[in-house]
Nucleic acid binder design. Sequence first.
RNA 1: GCCGCGUUGGUCAAGGGGUUAAGACGCAUCCCUUUCACGGAUGAAUCACGGGUUCGAUUCCCGUACGCGGUACCA
Length: 510
Amino acid sequence: MEHKKVRVRFAPSPTGGLHLGGMRTVLFNYLYARQHKGDFVLRIEDTDQTRYVAGAEEYILECLRWCGLEADEGPHAGGPYGPYRQSERKDMYRQYAEQLVKDGYAYYAFDTPEELDAMRARLKTDDNPSPQYNHIVRPHMRNSLRLLPEETAQLLAAGTPHVIRIKMPASEEVAFTDMIRGEVQFNTGTVDDKVLLKADGMPTYHLAVVVDDYLMKISHVFRGEEWLPSAPVHILLWRYLGWEEQMPQWAHLPLILRPDGNGKLSKRDGDRLGFPVYAMNWNDPRSGEFTKGFREMGYLPEAFINMLAMLGWNDGTGQELFTLDELVEKFSVSRVHHAGARFNIEKANWFNHQYLVKADNRRLAQLLMPLLQEKGVQASEEYVANIAGMVKERCNLVNEIWDHSFFFFQQPETYDTAAVKPKWNADKRQFFLEWGSVLETLSDFSLAGIEDSFKQLATSMNMKVGELQLPLRIMLCGGKFGPPVFNIAEMLGKHETIARIMKAVPVFDA
RNA sequence: GCCGCGUUGGUCAAGGGGUUAAGACGCAUCCCUUUCACGGAUGAAUCACGGGUUCGAUUCCCGUACGCGGUACCA
C-alpha cells in the first residue's frame, strides 16, 4: 500500500462556474500528484441528469488549462481507466449495488418521493428538524428489509421504481485517519441510509465515488471539508465491497469562507462585494446570468494559483511567493491549516501586483490588446509593451494598466486645471511656449535630451524646475498621475508632446 | 435538534509549556518623489471563555461558548 502509485483525481460536477474552492482543490491534487510523480485524473461527476449544464465541462477544462493544471487523464485526454464521465459509466454501477444487496449491506427501497415527504413531515419535530431514513425508521418503510421476499420479488418483477440504499449499522464506530485532521470517528447510528442507486438507474455520488476511485486506482482523495460527514458511508462501502485494502487515503481540505459574516464563500458574495469568485467568466445558459471571473478581471494565473495555495497552506518560513514548481516541491499535507480561511480580495490583489510587476511586458501587451480594441485604440504591441512596463508597478490588475496609461493613446480632453491655475502666470506660459520651439529643433529627443533642455531653459529663465513639472504633467496627461513626466514626453514623441503643450496653454490661460 | 470539524491582531497566519507571541495583507504616520505608485522607517492591533495538570499555560486535558459543515433519489 505504501508503494502504491500516487493517483489523485479532481471530480467536479458540471453544473456551473468553477469557483475558488474548486480551483484550490484542483491545485492541491495537482501538487500532490506532481510531487509524488503520480497521475492526476479529471473525472466528470454528472450523475444528476437534472442538473446538467451545457458547456460546463468545457469550461472546467479551460479553467485548468488557464492555470496550467491540466489533468493527465480525463474526458479530454483519455486514459487507461476511461470513460471519465460517470454518465458514460452508468452500466458499471448497478452490479455493485446489487452485490451489496446480496451481501446484506444494502436493500431495495420502493418508497415514492411522496412517501418520503410524508415520513419526514410525520417525524419532524423541533428536536428533530430533519428526520433521516435510518435504522430506526427503515422498519416502517416500503423496502426489502421489511417486505416479504416474495413481495420484493414481485415489485421488482413488475418494474416498480426503486432505489438501493446502504444499510447503516445501528451502532458501530467507523474511524479513519485523515491526512489533514488526524483521527476522525463517527458512529454509524447517526448516519442515514444513503441512496446508492437512484430510481433512474444512475448511482448517487456516494456509490459512484467509491466504485470509480476503486476502478481508477485512486490512492489519495483531496476534497472539501463538506464531504467529511459522508466519509463513514464511503469507508463502509469500501469495506462492504471488499476493497478496504485498496482504499485511498483521505484529506479533507478546509473551506474557503466569505470575507464578511459567516458561511462558505459563494458566487453571490462576489456579486455583492464586487470581486470574482469564479476562475473565469461564466455565462449560465439556463438563467442567462453572466458572472465575471478572475481571468477576465485581469488576474494572472500564476498569481491566482499562488494566492490559492496560501489560502490554507504555508511552508512555515514566511515565504509567500512561490512558483508552481516551488509549490510542487514544497507542498505538504501536514502543513495544511485545519480551519477554514476567509477570502480576502485585497490580498489577492497584492499577489497579482507582485506577479504583474515581474511579468514580461510583451505578454502584458498581448493580454491588453482585447481591452484596447474595446476602447477603439490602435497601437503596436511594442508600444503597448513599453507603456505597460512603465505603469505596471502602480497597478494590481492587468486591466488597470489602461486606467494608468490611457493618455498615451489619446490626448487629454479635460485638464485638472485646479492643480495648475493658482500658480499659472505669464512667465510659465512664456516658458512652455519657448520650450516648445526648443523641442522643435531638438535633434536628440531622448529622455536625457528632453530633460536637459527643460532644465537648461528653466535655469536660463530663472525659474524653478520643480514648479514647471506639474504643469507639464497636466499638459501631457490631463491630471496628476502617470509615470515620470519626461518619460511620458519621450514615449509620446516630439510632435505629440509639442502638440499637447500648445493645446493646453490656452486652456490654462482661460 | 443530532453528528462532525474548527477557534492566535480586521484578514491570511508562524509558533507550541518559560518568547518583547514571527511574518504578510490592510490601516495610520513619516521619509523618498513637486503626480501617483514603488521602496524605506515607525506605529496601532491577537492567543474565545471557564476549570484543571504544572513551579509555570497561548501551547496539554476537560467543559462551555461561538463559528462552520453535514443531516436530499445534489454533488
